[in-house]
Design a protein around this nucleic acid. Sequence first.
DNA 1: AGGTAGAGATTGTTCAACAATCCTGCAAGA
DNA 2: TCTTGCAGGATTGTTGAACAATCTCTACCT
Lengths: 243, 243
Amino acid sequence: MSSSSEIRPTAEPGTDTSWLRAVADDAALFDRSSSAERVADVLRRRITEGVLKPGTQLSEELLKEALQVSRNTLREAFRLLTHEGLLVHRMHRGVFVPDLTEDDLLDLYRLRRVLECDVVRALDGLDPDRLEPLREDVAAGEAAALAEDWISVGTANMRFHRHLVGLAGSTRMDEITGRLLAELRLLFHVIATPRALHEPYIARNRELLELLEAGEYTRAADELNAYLLDSQAALLAAFRARA
Amino acid sequence: MSSSSEIRPTAEPGTDTSWLRAVADDAALFDRSSSAERVADVLRRRITEGVLKPGTQLSEELLKEALQVSRNTLREAFRLLTHEGLLVHRMHRGVFVPDLTEDDLLDLYRLRRVLECDVVRALDGLDPDRLEPLREDVAAGEAAALAEDWISVGTANMRFHRHLVGLAGSTRMDEITGRLLAELRLLFHVIATPRALHEPYIARNRELLELLEAGEYTRAADELNAYLLDSQAALLAAFRARA
DNA sequence: AGGTAGAGATTGTTCAACAATCCTGCAAGA
DNA sequence: TCTTGCAGGATTGTTGAACAATCTCTACCT
């Protein structure tokens, strides 16, 4: 702190504000109070896990008892999840886990292709260190695949794509992507065989990462586009073949 | 109704359900009740009009009196607008009209370029009738320019771009675009001279429309990209030169 | 000047009650 | 048989009040 300090990253003592960024990131962790958000967290997990199946209604009366919160707080949690696309609100009827259609599937994938490919294409001059989260996600996916834990493979895949978009440094793209992937999860649960749906993409994630490490952003974008088209086709086929 | 009816569009009477689609679309119009949404409509207009300037706090107590609604309903309206990006919520401090930064400006325009240009590029095989709303918006913009009503020029421009994205038929893109344009409006209000900001683009809207009518989608996309880059640059310059 | 404690104001959360709307089932009529 | 109209119960929409938690500001102390 004082001028006797041997290591001084900046010229003036006390003017180094680089640590502020890290602290500010941590702030979100304990700032996350609010009963409604905690309730939303619980429901979000249950919905993305597939415990709450598409079409089921979330009764205010029952959930109020189960979660021990006020109706108003519960309703606020509903609104949060509605905004994320994980619930739909029908006037005077209540909230329901949405039943996504083929059109939704195509819509979601179209947006994914547009956003993710654009992010990759504009990655020129990227600091290689920023690829570290992607490396971890790819490794986590491969490890989960070895353990044949296909739902962990799915979440690792999700995290990979979320981190990929995060490289753009656009808060709005991050938000949109979060919602897209959450909605996509709803579609995954109508599929019987998660393995066939996730396994092919762990190798392609590795491949994509290597292209990024090599700085081949144009090729990476093309590969990602093909990747997403294949994924869409596979999911669409599985969707049509469902019970 | 009976079999004596002379005009029968389908073979079997009573089996023609083509009109159902049109009626279903109308349903959304009167379903739009809910006090919170009406309150949100009022506040939304005031915010986008610039009456409520960036940085001002919306007190629950005062607005409760002014709008004659309960605090809970008011808070729900706040949440709706927060999700649209027209308000920001600071924990235990209240809601404020956001003060957008240069980073937000660049972020918004980047997303606009990505989405709008992709929409145009994928417009192959478009039914020309669907360009009608765009024609009306361009005409409205030109008329407002003649009357030197620059805020109407601005809204016509907004509608033009919203309808442009609407051609893609993607509910999610529509939603995202609605939010982007609403946020952009917040930025417009820090600018002193709306004329310089909107006038150059009414001719370019016409130009873009003509390219679309001619089916020159690739050229239209390129023109739109340049258009948005110019618009961004102009807005950025005005933003930096503000008081 | 700088930091601290407390008052006052504002928001977060809960509860209870009533109004408005939807769904269900049943009965009356064509 | 099918449709239509009408209760009844159930659920959501909205309100008002109360209390807890947090922030802001002022006055005070060192």
